[in-house]
């Protein structure tokens, strides 16, 4: 029953992304275009097919996958404040992007990130992916060296801080235009994935989710801690590696294509637990996908400021919604006994 409601919510969210924007298109027309029919205004069709569909698909992929990645990290580290970026992947991606935008001197066009020039957009994606992959490989080596989860977590935070310090050095020595371009990238955007890039983006995200689905049963055992998990036959080492790869792949590819999208990965798992009132990962996994889609679409519509030409950065919208959720979680943990924050 809950899942039916969540599915409807996600569907409504997707439709809303199709309908709202600088041009308002009636939801019925969106459905008609998608089902291959013709609509009264011929301009609507290219808008929907070329702009709105990629944007809705991107929002759905980002929301659903970040929700799952957040769930994985919170369960693995048994900490409600963990998120997909806790292993430093997005800061690695930021470093890659900073190198391209700031030091390579591509500062001429502010439209670099608007998705107009595929070539430069691709360069940003490749740089971000390289940065994310570099951090991921470091973290995987660290995870296989240190059995202690807390150590892995601290190294992740340290790697993140290290990357950001290099980014800030690069910013210090850069031209105002390139700094502007970089900070636009850090705001995040669901419009940066073009229709041509969408299949690649979707394939990597779905692969990450698939890898994550393999570990779902065993993550349930992790709820009781490493030792209990090992005692019921879980290879904790492999589960940790597989889960880290899945979550980092998702976080890395999302950051590469859309910038560091904040708060969704942190807030969605808490919403899922709160709505379903369960700790069962087999239910939370699909719930996080659906809630993630709904929340990301909601933020996408919010950032479009319906009927106006201007758009807000996605991260402003997600933080607007995510920050209160984080506060609620913290306050609830502090109020309720038991010390559990998951």
């Amino acid at each position: 029953m809950t899942f039916v409601v969540l599915t409807i919510l996600a569907g409504v969210g997707l439709l809303a992304v199709g309908a709202f924007g600088s041009v308002l298109i009636p939801p019925r027309a969106v459905v008609t275009v998608l089902s291959g029919g013709t609509v009264e205004n011929p301009v609507w069709e290219p808008i929907i097919m070329e702009l709105r569909v990629p944007r809705a698909a991107t929002a759905a992929l980002v929301g659903g996958s970040l929700g799952v990645a957040g769930l994985q990290m919170q369960t693995l580290f048994r900490n409600g404040l963990a998120d997909p970026y806790i292993l430093g992947v997005s800061s690695g991606a930021s470093l890659g992007v900073a190198f391209v935008i700031l030091s390579a001197g591509i500062s001429a066009s502010g439209g670099l990130l608007a998705g107009s020039g595929l070539g430069s957009n691709l360069l940003v994606i490749v740089a971000a992916s390289l940065g994310a992959m570099a951090v991921l490989s470091v973290m995987l080596v660290v995870a296989s060296w240190f059995r202690n989860v807390a150590t892995v977590l601290i190294v992740g935070v340290a790697v993140g801080a290290f990357s950001y310090s290099i980014v800030s050095i690069l910013i210090y020595f850069s031209t105002p235009e390139s700094v502007q371009a970089f900070s636009v990238w850090t705001f995040g955007s669901f419009q940066s994935v073009t229709r041509a890039e969408l299949p690649v983006f979707a394939a990597v995200v779905l692969f990450g989710l698939g890898v994550g689905a393999v570990g779902v049963k065993n993550l349930n055992a992790m709820l009781l801690g490493d030792q209990y998990a090992a005692s019921v036959g879980v290879s904790v080492f492999w589960l940790r590696l597989v889960t880290m790869i899945s979550a980092s792949l998702i976080a890395g590819v999302v950051t590469s294509f859309c910038g560091p999208i904040g708060f969704i990965g942190l807030a969605v798992p808490h919403l899922a637990r709160g709505i379903l009132r369960t700790a069962d990962q087999r239910l939370l996994f699909p719930a996080c996908i659906l809630i993630g889609i709904a929340l990301a679409c909601f933020c996408a519509v919010l950032s479009q400021m319906p009927g106006r030409d201007a758009t807000l950065p996605i991260n402003a919208a997600t933080a607007l919604f995510g920050a209160p959720v984080v506060l609620w979680v913290l306050l609830r943990s502090a109020r309720e006994s038991g010390g559990a924050d998951l």
Binding site: A221, L224, G225, Y228, R273, L276
Partner: peptide, 30 residues
């Protein structure tokens, strides 16, 4: 080994929505 040996450890913190039944059912995990 999990099908032959079971453990009771000194863990005392649990996830919020984890019920007693969830925990007992984890015994069937192997």
């Amino acid at each position: 080994r999990a099908r032959m040996v079971s453990l009771v450890l000194t863990e005392r913190t649990f996830a919020r929505y984890l019920t007693g039944l969830d925990v007992v059912r984890l015994g069937r995990h192997p």
